[in-house]
Design a protein around this nucleic acid. Structure first.
Lengths: 408, 408
DNA sequence: ATTCTATTTGTGGAATTACACAAATCGTTC
DNA sequence: GAACGATTTGTGTAATTCCACAAATAGAAT
């Protein structure tokens, strides 16, 4: 192969994919950096399930991406300009193939995949693939520019939603259509707080992760200092809240797994259908974060606004309790007793309430025998004159315990 | 008996009691209208346990009063000027005796008791007793006047306490001593709301009842339109709150039993030791009443401020929820489901939460099988995406349910 | 009328919880 | 150190709750 066949100009990426396919005698797929399908060769109809799924869905299936990360394929593609060979992974229908990344300066713009259906590519063909990657560079830069412009429009629109800048729902829906996003009938807003200001590089990694997670659909996302804000479509989910919750958990795990970014604090809103409530949802998600800041140990497990319980109203409660010089007789008695007798009745009570009055769980959390806990609860009832079967009394105590905790 | 021996003037009631005792040959006791001991004869040492207890305690024991009411003795003494005979009631150590009431116009000022230790009083002696009663009238009027003046001082002091008019605790304690009340180390304030304005007559009945209830000590009481306000000493009680609660229940029962006054609404404060907190306690008791007004069915069982639970803060919560346009996704879903399928999931959830997550009790309250309730709870979890083991979620729901109820 | 699904109720066994009692432990007081 | 009371833990049994399954019922859709 003396002349580089890829020197010639080409009109579309499809045309180019076909050309490469013909040169290498194997099916070719071209993706962008987020594993969205850009083009695929059609002159060769031999293929494998992973490729079919990619073409049908216009993107690489999530489980395939996960597998490629686990196998170390994607990391090495992101690190090196050399082609990488992938061995068959039957579970996800991935046949043997070779991939190469497409570079612009120090940035990966996309990937070219060559399926090794019958034959294995030799060194020379590998080199050819590498040159093919270089040849697509300009085309991808153009695409990226176009996408960047669109991305800017998205950003602007998202901030308009977040600040309730658009008044009527009709206006919002029109804007969605203008940006070629189908407006969700059910949505939530999630906010992730990072431990540092998010830079250009982080942004790219995040965008990559968001694009590759396929469900739920992240319709819009933006970054505000240390916070990542997501607008998430939850249409068609039987249990949208659970889906949202699962996603947020997953996102945090993946960020750590893939990019080693830790200590992300998550918060998400209620689920709404009214598109006029994006700002409200945004506020809710931030309320969750603010509660976590105020009650680090209590609220680590709480991510959703609907799980906030009493903390939803913690601000006004603190205020009210402050002006009223709140003082709980039962707690006072228990504290006095604790002090005098070196016991932990107050803590016991709190853990018991935290654990939804479940003796077993509370005993475990306290590292004591169940009978010990029962004994303590009996004492708590007596000393504090508390009826632990009365939900109102329990709420009072729970509340006052948390309020007191906040004062310190 | 031609000459009325009681015509002669006498210096003290004690002297008079001895005189009557000598004429009738039996021990004599003189009480005021509230069964406080005014005087007793000492020349005759035959007596019975009830009389001993009365003299020791300077008042008729509560159980004796209760018994005399049940037997109809006191009602007839209050209705008629004729002497009444009481047969032995062994359980309370009450021997045979005769009583007569002391009248001023249409008002009973007190009673004279004559014990029939060995002999039974004949008609003539009964008549003699009646004349004796008449002879004490003036003495009792004097006592009453003195007491009225003291009562006025009490009233003024109580209102000073209720309005935090006295600044230092020292000042308060001095005032207590000046009025010959020993200041309590532990106290509570109870407010009873009657269904009508309280008149002179009601006031007397109430005062009577309060004086005859011996524990806890009602140190001060006053009436404000439809409300009776009590200042209650709780010193020495192991469980002051329970004592206070028991008293309030008892008071309502007695008012109905004795005077047929129904539909009294009760509310009582926390227990405090700081005498500067009387006003706060008063406010708490009124808060209970106001919650009962707002949530008639929810709060009928709640009497004490410490049992108010979330209702303690209901005002600020309502306000906050109002401005925030609060909307609970789970409840919304459940309501929609209820409407569409004619089910009662929301009500089921509420009862379940009211009953402190006790399946058995909630099933009873709803008149359904336990399994039915369990099935519904499972559906509630699914449809509302609720984790019923999470106390925060439960509190959220409880709160939002009550807030919604209030809006209607 | 029939089919379907959602709901209600019943049954029985496994799992969990409640409770009483005894022994051990620990700190305090005398 | 003896005695005491409060606390912790262990043991066993009774009571209750949980759960799975089946049958009966009701209501809606076809």
């Amino acid at each position: 192969m003396k002349n580089d066949p890829f020197r010639a100009s080409f009109d579309s990426l499809e045309e180019f994919a076909d050309m490469v396919s013909e040169v290498l005698h194997c099916p070719i797929t071209i993706e962008d950096a987020n594993h969205r399908l850009l083009a695929y060769s059609t002159h060769d109809d031999r293929t494998d399930p992973a490729r079919i799924a990619t073409i049908i869905g216009r993107r690489v299936p999530e489980k395939v991406i996960n597998s490629l990360w686990k196998e170390g394929v994607i990391p090495s593609l992101l690190n090196s300009r050399e082609p990488v060979r992938v061995k068959t992974v039957d579970e996800i229908g991935l046949g043997n193939r070779v991939a190469v990344s497409i570079w612009k300066n120090d940035e990966v713009l996309g990937f070219i995949w060559a399926l090794e259906i019958e034959k294995t590519l030799g060194d020379e063909e590998m080199d050819c693939l590498k040159r093919a990657a270089d040849a697509t560079k300009n085309k991808l830069i153009q695409l990226q520019n176009r996408k960047n412009k669109k991305e800017e429009q998205y950003q602007e629109f998202f901030w308009q939603l977040l600040t309730s800048h658009l008044s009527s729902n009709e206006e919002i829906i029109n804007k969605f259509h203008a940006l070629q996003i189908s407006p969700p009938t059910l949505f939530g807003v999630a906010v992730f707080q990072f431990s540092k200001e998010l830079g250009r590089e982080d942004e790219k990694q995040i965008a990559y992760l968001l694009k590759t997670i396929q469900l739920p659909k992240i319709l819009l996302h933006t970054i505000d200092h240390q916070q990542l804000i997501l607008f998430i479509a939850l249409d068609g989910n039987q249990q949208p809240v659970n889906k949202l919750n699962a996603f947020c958990e997953l996102f945090v795990v993946k960020m750590k797994e893939r990019f080693g970014i830790e200590s992300i604090v998550q918060g998400y809103s209620s689920v709404y259908c009214d598109l006029g409530k994006v700002e409200k949802a945004y506020k809710e998600a931030r309320t969750v974060l603010s509660v976590k800041r105020k009650f680090p140990s209590e609220a680590t497990e709480i991510h959703g606004y609907q799980s906030l319980g009493i903390y939803k109203y913690i601000d006004v409660l603190i205020e009210k309790a402050g002006t009223d010089q709140n003082e709980n007789y039962s707690l006072k008695r228990l504290q006095e007793y604790d002090k005098k007798n070196n016991t932990d009745l107050v803590e016991t009570l709190e853990v018991f309430l935290n654990k939804d009055s479940n003796v077993h769980e509370a005993a475990n959390a306290l590292n004591v025998h169940t009978n010990t806990l029962n004994y303590r609860l009996k004492r708590i009832s007596e000393i504090g004159e508390i009826n632990l079967k009365d939900p109102n009394q329990k709420i009072s105590l729970y509340l006052d315990l948390k309020l007191e905790k906040f004062k310190k």
